[in-house]
């Protein structure tokens, strides 16, 4: 039963990924810059969280 639920969920997720595969917002330079900055910001936050985690282990 668990396997069936898992398979059906994965199928739904694949369907969602297909449905939204192409972004519909016009990719202007501003949009590219904003998304790039957002990626950098999130990587920085993840790095800080990892540092905190490793620091806590020590």
């Amino acid at each position: 039963m668990i396997v069936t639920i898992f398979r059906s969920t994965m199928q739904t997720v694949r369907g969602i990924n297909q449905k939204y595969a192409t972004p519909h917002l016009k990719t202007t330079r501003l949009v590219r810059i904003c998304l790039g900055l957002l990626r950098a910001y999130l990587f920085l936050l993840i790095a800080i969280l990892l540092f905190k985690f490793i620091h806590s282990l020590h």
Binding site: I16, K19, Y20, A21, T22, L25
Partner: peptide, 12 residues
């Protein structure tokens, strides 16, 4: 978000 920016940002 899914519609405009695609599935990566949508799932995030």
């Amino acid at each position: 978000i899914f519609h405009a920016f695609g599935s990566f940002w949508g799932w995030f």
